[in-house]
Structure formats: C-alpha cells, structure tokens
Amino acid sequence: MNVFRLAGDLTHLLSLVVLLLKIVATKSCRGVSAKTQELYAIVFVTRYLDLLFSFVSLYNSVMKVVFLGSAFSIVYFMRYHKVVRHTYDRELDTFRSSFLVAGSMVLALLINSKYTFFEVLWTFSIYLEAVAILPQLVMLQRTGNIDNLTGNYVFLLGMYRGLYILNWIYRYSTERRYWQMIVWVSGIIQTALYADFFYYYLKCWNENRTLVIP
C-alpha cells in the first residue's frame, strides 16, 4: 500500500459519499445517470467475486463490501425510492449502455491473461469500468447547469483514476515482477475520458461560475 493508492481509494470512497449525500439530503438524483450507476454495480459484482475465495487484507475486503453496498444503494434510490425515482431525468440518460456491456464482454473473451471463468469476468470488469462513466459524461452535456454535488462527484471519480496511475508508476518502480498491462491500458483510457470534463470543471471553478459542459 502506498500513499497514491490510499489517496485514490479514499477519493473513490469520498465520491460515493458525495453522491449518496446528494441523493439522500436533497431527495433528488437530478443530473445523475442511472446507467452509469448500474454499470458500476455490474463492475463491482464481477470484480469482487474474489471475496468468496481469496483474502488479501481486511482493508481490501471491507472496501469491496462498502463499494458493492454503496453502488447498490445508489441504484436502489434512483430506481425504486418513492420520492427520489421521480427526480431521475430518464429522457436525458439515453446512452445505450448495453453496447458497453456487450463490447467489454467480447473484449474480455478475446484479450485476457488466463481463459478461466473468474479471470474473464475480472477482465470484463476492468474493461467495463473504463467506459462506465460515458453515460454520465453524455448526460452532463445534456443537463446544462450542473449542480455542485454532481460536478464534484465526477471530479472526485476522475481524481481517483489519476491517483491510481500514480500508484502504478510508484509500484512499477519499487516492486519486482509487478506488471499488469490490461489494467494499465484500460486505466489510462478511463482517465483520458475525464480530460474534457476536467478542463471545463477547472475553468468554471477558476471563473467562479456554475459548471456547464458545452
């Protein structure tokens, strides 16, 4: 565990707290893409199947359970909560997320490091996480004025990915035989998807005005 990895995980955790806080405190999920949240739920389920058969550390196991729990809570609020579900902007959340799932599955079947059930599902989760933010980014563009909490949520998610890249650089330079090309390439693509958002987020923050993605 290094400081970049820890900071990345905590930023990821914070992003989920911010999103849950927004939903619970304002009883609204305006501007939030349910499709992205459902993709994250799929990502966590397929990646953390290893909770059942491998143990790395208490830290890892607790975080996995927290990520799974928060992802499903968010989906529950957006789809089933009697007040919150009416605030979901269905007509702005039109990205065809099933294509992302299908594409990630095909890619995982073609490019993986071992052709076993759990390894293919784990690889699928890596590919799907890389593109899971796309419905949310498209929705931000269509929403117009983006409220602070939603903007901060996406910003924190992007920060988390950036910190993971620093973590990989650190691990590569300090650990022997540490090599995970699939994760690195997917992670760099994932982080690059945030570039546009980061540009407008920082620009608007600098000019002290409400976030708008043109």
Partner: peptide, 10 residues
C-alpha cells in the same frame, strides 16, 4: 500470482 498481477488493488 495474485499480488503480482495487481489483483490486490480495488
């Protein structure tokens, strides 16, 4: 091995 392939990350 688990650690070497980075599966100790989240």
């Amino acid at each position: 091995d688990y650690m070497e392939t980075g599966k100790d990350e989240l």
